[in-house]
Design a protein around this nucleic acid. Structure first.
Lengths: 174, 174
DNA sequence: GGATTTCTTCAATTCATTTTGAAGAAAGTG
DNA sequence: CACTTTCTTCAAAATGAATTGAAGAAATCC
């Protein structure tokens, strides 16, 4: 009963779509990847379009995104004119790469902007209590951003980490 | 120079807005919270609207979201008719609560849907190689979802965790 | 209770993102 | 090289989320 398999794949693709959408990607990327991941052989763009229900354009874009992220790859299939695609299967590696190339930037950028805000406050000549209070609190936020950054960095590098550093920093600040 | 403070607060608010938006919340929530967090005294809705540049409606909704998440609270200010608000300052606790009430649901739901897809495949009488292959791979995804779930759960409960379990599960699967 | 201030709600609008599908480019074939 | 298939691009449409602002509800004050 192949209909059941199709249904199962759609459910899985939907689920993965929601997960990656939550994570800030297009849900179609999740669906396409899942379809590829659950297929024994490489699939062509038109097969993907047909089986996911996505338009040709969406599939083309989705695939190009996946290729850029190294989450799918192009493979030659003998006797077929169309390009075919397979899923990268190292899910763990995928997560690591994404964290490295996206979260790291995000947190790094935030860290810098908090620094900027602090510098601005510190440049006030005749600072009053409000200014000092804001500086104090902003330093706290910056501290969290720093911790976040080093956690993400460690994770991206080592692939794993202990969250212990957070405890230290937290107990320090009540 | 209070303009500098205003600017610093806007920068910080923007930064926090981006962070929380990435995390799936409205960026206005981040801005409002940041403004409150950096202010020495509680602020009224209209002050918040004025200083963030948000409309009254947006502030009202943002505040109600923040209150529901326990990220801001209402305080009575003597001699003021309007309600005033302050920021919850335990950032760590906030993160924990959000993880518990949102990520846990999300991952839990995904886990169930993967199970459902697997069950569907397993219900196929005359399963072929493709079916078996898909089951195998789906079990892998389910395994990751399980690990994710227990990590998130542990984190939500203990407030901290070691990511070690992941290593084990990963080396097990190549 | 009436007057005033403040808050919430919600339909309409704006804004951002995703998807579509057709047109044209590119690649493959004989 | 002409022909076919396949892929990409992109403007337009669809979708979805956030925001606005005005109307009405609620709270507060005297």
């Amino acid at each position: 009963m192949s209909t059941k398999r199709e249904r199962a794949i759609l459910i899985a693709g939907d689920t993965m779509g929601d997960l990656v959408a939550f994570w800030g990607f297009k849900s179609s990327m999740g669906r396409i990847w899942t379809l590829l991941y659950l297929s024994t052989e490489p699939l062509s763009a038109s097969e993907i379009a047909e089986r996911t229900g996505l338009s040709s354009g969406a599939v083309s874009m989705g695939l190009s995104d996946l290729l850029q992220w190294g989450i799918a790859e192009k493979v030659a299939v003998s006797g077929a004119r169309a390009k075919h695609y397979t899923a990268e299967t190292d899910v763990w590696g995928i997560v690591r790469r994404i964290v490295r190339e996206r979260e790291l930037r995000l947190v790094g950028k935030s860290r810098e902007r908090f620094r900027e805000a602090i510098a601005l406050l510190e440049s006030i000549e005749d600072a009053d209590d409000h200014d000092r209070f804001a500086i104090e609190r902003l330093r706290g936020l910056l501290g969290l951003a720093e911790i976040g950054y080093s956690l993400v960095e460690t994770f991206a590098r080592v692939g794993m980490l202990s969250l212990e550093p957070i405890r230290g920093a937290l107990s320090r600040r009540g």
